[in-house]
Structures are given as structure tokens and as C-alpha cells.
């Protein structure tokens, strides 16, 4: 699938910035608040490299 087609198929409010991103950060309740964003950055870097 071309990227343009992929993009037009993505209609996911969770994958927006900053709203969806902040929601994702806040959802990591099992981590101390100050660690959540750094962890999520590390997480998405890792899984997009898998």
C-alpha cells in the first residue's frame, strides 16, 4: 500500500499530537509520572524498529 493510501486510511484520534500522545502518556499509570513520557518515546522508537 502506498503511504498516501495508508495515511488516508488512518482516522485514529489516539494517534494525534498532542491530544492522543498526552492520553497515551497518561495511560501508563503503572509508571511514576515523571518517567512516563521518556518511557513512551523509548517504546515507540523500539517498536517502530522491530
Amino acid at each position: 500500500m502506498m503511504l498516501e493510501e495508508k495515511d488516508s486510511a488512518i482516522d485514529n484520534p489516539f494517534l494525534t499530537y498532542p491530544e492522543g500522545w498526552n492520553q497515551a502518556v497518561e495511560s501508563l499509570v503503572f509508571l511514576p509520572e515523571e518517567m512516563r513520557e521518556g518511557f513512551l518515546i523509548q517504546f515507540i522508537t523500539t517498536v517502530t524498529s522491530m
Binding site: 503511504l3 495508508k6 494525534t16 499530537y17 518515546i41 522508537t45 517502530t48
Partner: peptide, 12 residues
């Protein structure tokens, strides 16, 4: 990364 790379790889 969040809105493009990750979104394209894991859109759902």
C-alpha cells in the same frame, strides 16, 4: 514518530 511512523505501522 507518533503521528506518522508509528501510526503508519500500527494504525489501529
Amino acid at each position: 514518530l507518533w503521528t506518522k511512523v508509528f501510526a503508519r505501522k500500527f494504525p489501529d
